[in-house]
Amino acid sequence: MPFSSLGLSPALLSTLVEQNYTKPTPIQETSIPAILSKKDVLGIAKTGSGKTAAYVLPILMNLQQSVLVKNRQANVLVLVPTRELAEQVKDIFKIFSKALPQPVKTLAVYGGVSINPQMMALQGVNVLVATPGRLLELLDANSVQLSAIETLVLDEADKMLNLGFKEEMNKILAFLPEKRQNILFSATLSTDLENINQILLHYPVVIKIADDELSLDLINQVAYIVSPEKKGPFLRHLISQQKMKQVLVFASSVQQVDAIVNKLCKNKIDAKSIHSKKSHGNRTDTLTLFKAGKLRVLVATDLMGRGIDINFLPFVINYELPRSPKDYVHRIGRTGRADAPGEAISLVSPDELHHFEVIQKKMGKKVEIRETEL
């Protein structure tokens, strides 16, 4: 099915061609008509499946037929868990709104940077992309109003709720008009998400796109049994032996991420970290370097991994296993994208073996486990 059959305008279809979008992904194919029809939508599909464009395109179409509000109100509110995702979503709105006959102003607001420029930029905003904490600060300062919101989007809703945003979400929802379109997109369907669906969504179109086994098949998975004290030396051995030029390493905590980077740098392996304790500017610069192939190793926590979207990333390494099998699949899904093969390597300590068996069972795939000599 081509994009032209989904009800999008010629301006948007032209931009899709310019941006090398050839055909809609399954989540786009199903979501776009539902959102165009102003229905509530719950979309469950893995990261990298095109969820952002699946709501950006129809929202922009609907805005062309709306009376765009003035002053410090917005028509559309998109809530996201991280600064990086806020910037990504804003950029996609801006890319597709360029050729539209009726201008659409999009702004991303988030913490970690000065609030004053964001306050000033809110004038005339139509699409507001926000992290919950900063949005509440702006609401407390009467810098923005949400009474005219026609469409609410929760992007990465599973992570937002798991990260303890529930109280902030409840405060934000109290500012919104009851009559609105609600769109929830998530890579996974957790119990928390099911609970909030019952509160937010009205007769939603539920779209669940099964994980594409072919994309998992593109990922060569292997695990090495390594004691915790030998994981650092073995990681350096792997990177050097396999001559990895671009590798994403996942660790479980901010402290562990920084420790790994320090050891890599001391051993003359170019590495940087990305986590919630870093400034926005630092995180943006680090991601830019890594995406451009100018940084050899990026070490990240699970949350920050949500902002890393690279079509041809060759290696992902799990320095430690995540607690959730779903997070494991999300991690390794950073590679093996856009029909390009990738390698996912896990360093599994003996006491993690049982948990790794659970991950394999949930994933539906067996992973080759190798002994190490180190």
Rank of each mutant, 00 (worst) to 15 (best):
L8V: 07
P10I: 12
L12W: 05
L12R: 04
L16M: 12
N20M: 11
Y21G: 04
I32W: 03
P33E: 00
I35N: 03
I44W: 01
A45D: 04
T47N: 09
G48W: 00
I59F: 01
L63V: 12
V69T: 15
K70A: 01
A74K: 05
L77P: 03
L79E: 04
T82G: 09
T82S: 13
R83A: 02
E87A: 02
E87N: 08
K98L: 13
Y110P: 10
P117Q: 05
P117K: 02
M119A: 00
G124K: 11
V129K: 15
P132L: 01
R134M: 01
L136E: 04
A141Q: 14
N142E: 11
V144Y: 04
L146G: 01
S147K: 13
V153E: 09
A157K: 02
M160A: 08
L163T: 01
I183V: 11
T191V: 14
E194N: 07
L200E: 09
L201Q: 10
P204E: 02
V205M: 06
D211K: 11
L214H: 07
N220V: 10
P228L: 01
Q256E: 15
V257G: 01
K266L: 15
I269Y: 07
S273A: 15
I274D: 04
H275P: 13
H275Y: 12
K278F: 07
N282D: 12
R283W: 03
D285G: 08
T286V: 15
T288Q: 15
L289C: 13
L289W: 13
A292V: 02
A292I: 02
K294A: 05
V297H: 00
A300E: 09
N311K: 15
F315L: 04
L321G: 05
S324P: 02
K326N: 09
I332N: 05
G336W: 01
A344Y: 00
L347A: 05
L353S: 03
F356Q: 14
K362Q: 08
K365H: 07
K366E: 14
V367S: 12
